[in-house]
Amino acid sequence: MYSLQRDVFFDVNLEDLLISADKVAHVQVGNTLEHALLVLVKSGYTAVPVLDSAFKLHGLISKNIILDSLLGVERIETEKLAEYNVEEVMDTNIPQVTLNHTFIKVLGMSINHPFICVVDEEGAFEGIITRRVILKLVIRHLNQE
C-alpha cells in the first residue's frame, strides 16, 4: 500500500512545475473563432488561454466552446467562425493561481481542470501547470516511499 507524507508537498516550488508563457499555445481576445480553432487543432489541445496584447489573462477558449457557438437550430453555422471573436464566447471562469499558492491548492484544482493558469500579481500570464506534471510529481514521491 502506498502512503504519502502530506508535508512533502508543502515544500514544492510551483515555479519548478511551470511551463512558461512563451511555450504555451494561446490566442488573443480579438482573434476570430476561426483562428482559435486552427490553433487548437494544430496544437492538439482542447483548450488554450486567451490573452490581451499586454499578456494579461482574460479567459479560456476550447473546441467545445467554439462548436457550441456554431450550433444553430437546424445546422452548424460555420460562417460564425469568421464573424465572432474569441472574447465573445470564451470562458471567463479561469482556474488560476499565483506562484505564492501552495501545491496542495494546485493539486485540488487539477481534479477538474487539465491545466491551471499561473498569473502574477497584476494578472499577467506567466504560464501553466499541467495535470500531467502534477501527477508525475506525485508518482515520483510514491515511488520513493
Rank of each mutant, 00 (worst) to 15 (best):
I111H: 10
L4K: 00
Q5F: 06
I76L: 14
G127D: 01
T102H: 05
R132K: 15
S69V: 05
T92R: 15
H26S: 14
R140L: 00
S3N: 02
F9H: 00
V138T: 10
R131C: 01
S110G: 11
G30F: 05
K105L: 10
E145A: 05
M1S: 14
S43A: 11
N13L: 11
G30K: 10
F55Q: 12
N100V: 07
V8M: 00
D91R: 08
E121C: 10
G44K: 07
V106E: 03
L70T: 10
N143M: 07
S43V: 02
G72K: 07
D22E: 12
V138K: 00
R75C: 04
E34D: 14
Q28D: 08
L33I: 01
A54P: 04
V8S: 05
D22R: 07
E126K: 15
G44Q: 08
T98H: 06
V8R: 04
E88I: 03
R132W: 05
I128P: 03
I116S: 00
I139L: 13
K136W: 04
G127R: 05
H58C: 05
V12N: 11
L81T: 04
H26A: 02
L14D: 05
N64P: 14
L70F: 13
H35Y: 12
I66Q: 02
I116R: 01
R132L: 11
F10C: 06
S3E: 11
L70P: 00
G72M: 04
L18I: 13
D7K: 06
H113G: 01
R132G: 06
E34H: 02
S110R: 09
G59E: 08
T46I: 14
A82N: 13
D120N: 13
K56W: 07
V119K: 08
A25G: 03
R131N: 05
L17V: 12
E122V: 13
T78E: 07
L107A: 13
A21K: 15
V97W: 00
V48G: 00
I104R: 09
N112E: 05
R131P: 14
I134K: 02
G72N: 03
H35E: 11
D120Y: 02
E87N: 09
L4G: 00
E121S: 13
F55M: 14
